[in-house]
Each structure stands twice: as structure tokens, then as C-alpha cells.
Design a protein around this nucleic acid. Structure first.
Lengths: 230, 230
DNA sequence: GAATCAGAGTGACGCAAATCACAGCCGCTC
DNA sequence: GAGCGGCTGTGATTTGCGTCACTCTGATTC
């Protein structure tokens, strides 16, 4: 990938957006490109931070694991999104595990290099604050959902969010263009595979959506919103 | 409160710690002191941020409310701790409600004033990042607990945390020197009042602690840790 | 086309914890 | 001291959902 392309890429990124070309030229040489197969762990929760990551192509999931192996997904990241930011800046361990979901291209910037850049351009710190604030809001929304909403509502809410982010309009309704297994849906919502199956069926029976294998088409968005109690 | 006292106070605060006296002198005049009775709402979730707060005396709880009035407490803050930071820096609405638990003295700094200070002293931004990182880790721990642990373990974990933060050693064990009602404990752990009662009794029966009204003394810390599956 | 295997659907069952419904129990004030 | 209102403790009941134990489906490989 050429320098110029990398620069263009950085401009689409939440932390480096809005920097001048000269500033970006300082960052570009720090980018290290990596290709990863699907289901590759980038780092484990608890590892000490060595780098800051950016997703180029493919999807990366960030999750916590319970002692008995259950997963709670915190975020699924794709093009232009960053991860491993918190530990890079505060020096602590990664608070969750990061794993690729498909074949993926990522960039990484070694921690020390990035800290140098931020020291030289403190205005980046303001952007970082914005990103962390965003993350924190997200995390608190998850807390609210886990604490107050029951599974069917959380699931419906997830589908609506996925439709917004990855939806594609068809004559039947909004097709969620993101191939997730029942287990993956369960890990996001915080429930079991079986319950996802059952609740999806229930929604289908209520004419809210249509299921075809892994593809879900939302046919009644308003109804689904009511179902989600949103 | 005198200027000098305010300066000393700021030095004990996570964001302003480590600043020079001259820098602090710039901040001191921005501090506005407020006395609040117990159970006073400082701001509601969703309000647009007008200021940044610091706790002087008393306790402030930060929490989310469900549509039917249940509360999930995110943090209980006391001397020297700050709140309302995220929205102050990213300009969004407050992500949760803040309410005093007793008669309280707080300081506030209007948003615009604080942003001015940070613009003039970008090194504060680094501190802010550290605080947000800390908050985010905390929030993710809460997610983990809600998602993976069941109520008895969460409750035991809370007691251990309270013992660390507010504990006082006695000959009987560690007395938790913080008067919380069953309902408040329930709101922190994310359960019901009745369940807290029952689970506390269960721990008392198992010789892990002693209950005297609102005062809990932990008599077997190791046992309690095992109970918490920590 | 048989064999294999991961993912998906389904029913039965059990259990943690919420909810409901009361009955004490302090600390108030009048 | 009677009455009152906010916290507690307690049993009975309900329920949401996880778990278990299968079967079924549709790819993939031989």
C-alpha cells in the first residue's frame, strides 16, 4: 500500500481525521501492516499494551471471556475503526480480548511511536478524549441494557442497530448484510445460542422479520422498535 | 474556603494533581462552591453538559434509571473525585444521573472555563485521558460482572471492594464504614432489595461476616473471596 | 452418493432471582 | 404513648432463561 493511500486511510480514521498533510506524513511511516486469517487473536485481555491498532479490512471483535468460556462481545469493528487505544494511552493492560472474525488487514503503531506523536501534537489528545468518551458512552449503554432489559428486547435492539449500520434496503425490507451465527448474536446480546433461535422465531411469527439462514430481513421496523421497547 | 485551601484541594484531585502552583492559581478562581442537601439531583442523564464537578465532602452517586424506576449505580464518589467529565470534554449529554447521598459540598467549573484551561495547558488532556481510561475499565468490569457473575458473587465482590475502600479494622474483622441501605446495595449490585437481605443472611450463616443493622463486619475475608469466586 | 461435521432447531427440565404480599421494627412527631 | 412512614425480614409464587439432550439441516470431503 502506497504512502499516499495510507494517508488517505488515516484521514478516514477518528483519531487522525482533520490533521494536516504534514502531520499525517509524520504518522504514515509508523504504520505497520499486518494480514491476519480469521479467528486470530490480536491480543488477550490482560496483556500489556504494546501497540495501537486500526482496522483496514475485515471485522475484529472485542470481547470479555468468562472463566467457563462464555463470551460477551463489547464491539465489532470494521474499516477505519481503532482498538487498543485505552491501554496505549494509560499504560495499563488491555481490558478485553481482540480477535479477527474473517481474513483481515490491520495496521498497528507501536505504543512508544504513537505516544511520541501525541507529545509532539497535543491536539491529537483532544481527539483521543472524544474517542474514549464515545467508548464510555457505549459501555454504559451496554450496562443499561444488561441491567434493565430482558433478552428479547436486547436482541431486537441489536437487530435494529445492525440494520442501521449494515442494512441494505430491499423490496422486502432491510436486509442485515452481516453474516453472524446464532452463537455470535448470543455473545453480543449476552444470552445463549438456543435463546437467540427461539426469540428470532418468535419475532418471525409476529411478522417483524424474515429469516433465511444467516440472513435476516426486517420487514416491520416500527414493530421491531416497539418489540425492543426502544 | 481560602484560595490556598482550594489549591491544596486541587492537588489531591486526579486531573489537577501534579500541576505547578502557578497553573493551579489559574484554576482556583474558576471553582464555584455549592452546598447541597442529601438526595439532591445534580444533573439528570441526558442533560446537556454545563459544568464539570468535584466532590468536596459527602457522597455522590452516579446511576442510570430504568423506565420503571429501577436504578443501576455506576459509581459512588467522595472526597476529591470528579464527575461530569466525559460530557464536559466531548460536548455530549451526561450519560447518567448524579445525585447526592448526604449533605454535600461540591465544586463546579463551568464547561467553557475548563475548556479554556485545557486549551492553555494541553498536558491536562493527558490526565483526562488517564481518568477516562480508568472509567472505561471500571465500566467494562461492571459489564463483565453483570454478564458472567450471579448475584451472590457480585454482592460478595462488592463487599470486598467496600472493605478495601471504606473498611476500618476492628478486633472482630473489617467494619465497612459506609452506611448503605439494602436498597442501595441492591442498586449497586443490580438486584432486588429482598435478594440482598437473603444473600447477606446466607453469608452471615456461613460465618463470613456479621450484620448489625447497616453495619457489616467482614470476619473471614478469604472465605468471602472464595464466595465471590474472585 | 455416503460419510462427516458444524451450525441450527426443539422440547423438557431446573433453577436463580424477581415479584408479591405481609409482618415486624425502629425512629419520628404530635 | 399512640400513630405514622421508612426501612427491613420472610415465605410463597412465578418466570425468564440457561442447560441438557437430541434431532435435523446443509455444506464439504472422500
Amino acid at each position: 500500500m502506497s504512502e499516499a493511500e495510507k494517508r488517505e486511510y488515516l484521514k478516514r480514521t477518528p483519531v487522525f481525521r482533520g490533521l494536516s498533510d504534514e502531520e499525517l506524513d509524520e504518522i504514515v511511516p509508523l504504520l505497520i501492516e499486518r494480514k491476519l486469517r480469521g479467528n486470530t487473536v490480536v491480543f488477550h485481555e490482560g496483556d500489556t499494551a504494546s501497540a495501537f491498532y486500526l482496522v483496514k479490512t475485515g471485522r475484529v471483535k472485542i470481547y470479555k471471556v468468562s472463566p467457563d468460556g462464555r463470551e460477551q462481545v463489547l464491539a465489532i469493528l470494521s474499516d477505519g475503526q481503532i482498538f487498543g487505544d485505552v491501554p496505549t494511552f494509560d499504560g495499563g493492560p488491555y481490558p478485553a480480548t481482540a480477535e479477527t472474525m474473517d481474513d483481515t488487514k490491520i495496521f498497528l503503531i507501536p505504543r512508544e511511536d504513537l505516544l511520541g506523536v501525541v507529545r509532539r501534537h497535543p491536539e491529537i489528545a483532544i481527539k483521543v478524549i472524544a474517542v474514549l468518551g464515545q467508548r464510555l458512552r457505549q459501555a454504559l449503554e451496554l450496562v443499561r441494557d444488561l441491567s434493565f432489559k430482558q433478552v428479547p428486547h436486547r436482541l431486537a435492539g441489536l437487530l435494529l442497530k445492525l440494520a442501521d449500520e449494515y442494512g441494505e434496503e430491499t423490496e422486502k425490507g432491510t436486509l442485515i448484510n452481516l453474516s453472524l451465527s446464532r452463537q455470535e448474536l448470543a455473545d453480543i446480546v449476552g444470552t445463549s445460542r438456543e435463546t437467540v433461535t427461539r426469540e428470532l422465531k418468535k419475532m418471525e411469527r409476529n411478522q417483524l422479520l424474515r429469516i433465511d439462514r444467516r440472513y435476516i430481513t426486517i420487514t416491520d421496523r416500527e414493530g421491531l422498535k416497539r418489540w425492543a421497547r426502544l
